[in-house]
Amino acid sequence: MRTVIGSAALALAFAPALAQQSPYAEYQRMARESAPVELFELAGEEAWKKKQGPKNVSLEQCDLGQGPGVLKGAYASLPRYFKDTDRVMDLETRLLHCMMTLQGRSREEATKRVFGNADNASEMEVLSAYIAGHSHGMPMRPGTSHAKEKAAYQLGQKLFFHRAGSWDFSCASCHGEEDKRIRMSGLPVLYKPQVARPLIATWPAYRVSNSQFKTMQWRMNDCYRQMRMPEPMFGSEAMVSLVHFLTVTAQGEPYRGPAIKR
């Protein structure tokens, strides 16, 4: 038997018959069915178990908040306060902490390439895919009770609305009004829980437009680039607070990532 096959044709052939849908919704559905997220999860598992750094150990004993090495539900309960560092940390910040403490790596070395490209995803990206995958289906419950968690939320909220930079932009310039779009892209009003929930609960994610797996810290970084601001530092209090604000706004939503996005 000899068959000539193409991914689009196959996806369609086995899709349930759908009622009339917008072409964009149809595109989103097809993208979802062909998400190569699992490849990044596989690479992440390898990175998690790889012995490296001056201490030549893996990250397997990294405590992401649920105890050393516990992955189940870890992502869904971040960002949260960590007693050992006395600060609120999101997944990527915590991973960096483990690379520095467990593996003995320097900040410079561990953050040299936090954002990868289509040819080569970064260690942080594949680790995020692997770890977030262990929270699939669990409600997002970032920490909200500790004083520093409350402070992080407050700071994140202020940053969200703070206008600055050459173009006077805040996050709300694009994500503050309903039913607006940039070019053809819809702009979610991210400080509204009902809007934030499905979006925040799907990061980190594979972006079809550039075939890359991307993390929350990258999302923040790339927004500030387009806001014509200087560059936020990876894992800084400002970035963790902003991620915390968005995650608390989305809290309660079952985690549905790592997902696929435009």
Binding site: L155, K158, L159, H162, R163, A164, G165, S166, D168, Y224, R225, R228, M229, P230, E231, P232, M233, S236, E237, A238, M239
Partner: peptide
């Protein structure tokens, strides 16, 4: 305080220099 946080947690890159976090009268 927010401006102070930006000064601490952001860095100049390319043409996006740190003076961009300073607020003018409009902002």
């Amino acid at each position: 305080e927010v401006t102070a946080v930006l000064k601490r947690d952001f860095r100049a890159r390319g043409q996006a220099t740190m003076d961009r976090v300073e607020l003018d009268e409009v902002q």
